[in-house]
C-alpha cells in the first residue's frame, strides 16, 4: 500500500505542474499589470519601474516562473501585492472561518440527503418520492444568488432570527453569524445530493442481497440502515470526499455576501484586485488538496470494500 500511495503521489506531480502553468500563464503572461493601481492617484514611470522591481516583475518570465516554483516548494508563497502580508498567513487565517461554514454544511447536507434519498428510494414511485424529487429539482433550479439575496432580507432582517452579516473570531461568538450561510449552503447542496443518493439507493435496492434480506423477514428499517447503507458506502464516500478539498476554500459567494473572512472571500477580492501571489498560492493549495483527496478516497474504497484492490 505504501508503494501505491507513493506512486499516486508521483502521478500528482505533473498535474500540479500543470496547475502552476495555467495560473502563471493566465496571470503573469496574459494578466494585466498589477503595479500601476498600487501607486495611487499620481505617480511617475520611475515609481512604476521601482515597484515592479520590488515585486520581482521586472525579471524575464522564465525566472519569474522558477521563482514561483521555488516559493511553492518551500511553502513560502511570497507576499500579497495589495496588503504586503505573507500569503502563508493569509491562507492560515482564512481556513478557519471557511471551515466553520463548510464543515457543518457538508455534514448536514450529507445526512439530510441520505435520509431523504433513502425515504425516496423506499417509496419509489409513490407520492412522497415524487414530491422529494420535484422539490430537489426545484431547489437546484433556483439561482444561488437568489437564496443569498432573499435569505438576508426575508429570513434574517424581517424575522430577526439570524444575524444579517458579519463574523466574530470567538469559537462561540461566531456561531450566531453562521446559521444562515450554513442553511443556504445546505438547501442548495441537498437539491443536488438527494437525487444522487436516491439513485444510489434505488440501484442498491434491486440487488439480490436486499431481496434476500426481505425474504428472511428482516424489518424494513434494519434492511435500510444495516444492509443498504453499508453497501452504498462507496458512492457516499466518493461523493463526500470530492467535496472535502473544497471545504477549505469555502464558498466564494456565500463568504463575500455574509462578510465571513474566509478564503473564498479573500479569493474573490484577490481576483478583483489583481493580487496574483494570493491567487496562485490559493489555486495551488486547493489543487494539491484535491489530488490528495482523490488518493484518500481510493484508500477508503479499499477499506470499505474488500473487493477493491489497489493497483
Amino acid at each position: 500500500m505504501g508503494a501505491y500511495v507513493i506512486r499516486r503521489l508521483l502521478q500528482g506531480v505533473p498535474i500540479l505542474i500543470g496547475v502552476t502553468l495555467i495560473t502563471f500563464t493566465l496571470l503573469n503572461v496574459f494578466g494585466g499589470d498589477p503595479v500601476v493601481a498600487r501607486l495611487g492617484k499620481s505617480s511617475t514611470l520611475e515609481d512604476q519601474a521601482a515597484l515592479r522591481a520590488e515585486y520581482g516583475l521586472d525579471k524575464p518570465l522564465w525566472q519569474q516562473y522558477f521563482r514561483y516554483l521555488q516559493e511553492i516548494s518551500t511553502f513560502d508563497f511570497g507576499r500579497s501585492f495589495v496588503t504586503r502580508e505573507s500569503v502563508r498567513d493569509i491562507l492560515a487565517s482564512g481556513a478557519g472561518p471557511s471551515l466553520s461554514i463548510t464543515m457543518p454544511a457538508l455534514l448536514l447536507t450529507t445526512l439530510i440527503s441520505i435520509t431523504l434519498g433513502m425515504i425516496s428510494a423506499f417509496n419509489r414511485g409513490k407520492a412522497i418520492d415524487r414530491a422529494i424529487v420535484v422539490l430537489a429539482v426545484m431547489g437546484m433550479s433556483v439561482s444561488f444568488l437568489v437564496y443569498i439575496v432573499a435569505g438576508q432580507y426575508f429570513v434574517a432582517f424581517k424575522t430577526g432570527w439570524f444575524q444579517i452579516y458579519g463574523y466574530e473570531s470567538g469559537l462561540v461568538e461566531r456561531w450566531q453569524y453562521l446559521y444562515l450561510p450554513i442553511l443556504i449552503q445546505v438547501i442548495v447542496g441537498v437539491g443536488y445530493d438527494v437525487r444522487f443518493y436516491r439513485a444510489v439507493m434505488v440501484d442498491e435496492s434491486t440487488k439480490l442481497y436486499i431481496v434476500t434480506a426481505y425474504a428472511k423477514g428482516l424489518p424494513r428499517w434494519k434492511v435500510m440502515f444495516k444492509h443498504m447503507l453499508k453497501n452504498a458506502l462507496i458512492p457516499i464516500i466518493t461523493r463526500v470526499m470530492i467535496a472535502v478539498p473544497f471545504l477549505v476554500t469555502g464558498s466564494l459567494l456565500i463568504e463575500s455576501f455574509f462578510g465571513i473572512p474566509g478564503l473564498g472571500h479573500r479569493m474573490l477580492a484577490a481576483i478583483d484586485e489583481q493580487d496574483y501571489p494570493v491567487i496562485k498560492a490559493f489555486t495551488f493549495v486547493i489543487s494539491s488538496l484535491f489530488i490528495a483527496g482523490n488518493i484518500v478516497t481510493d484508500l477508503l474504497y479499499a477499506a470499505a470494500d474488500p473487493r477493491v484492490r489497489l493497483r
Binding site: I15, G18, V19, I22, T23, L26, L27, F246, T249, L252, M267, L268, I271, I279, F282, T283, I286, S287, F290, I291
Partner: peptide
C-alpha cells in the same frame, strides 16, 4: 485532470 483540479468558479473568474 489539471483543469478539473482547480475549483471551477475560480478558474472561470480568473479566465
Amino acid at each position: 485532470s489539471t483543469i478539473e483540479s482547480i475549483p471551477y468558479l475560480l478558474l472561470l473568474m480568473v479566465l
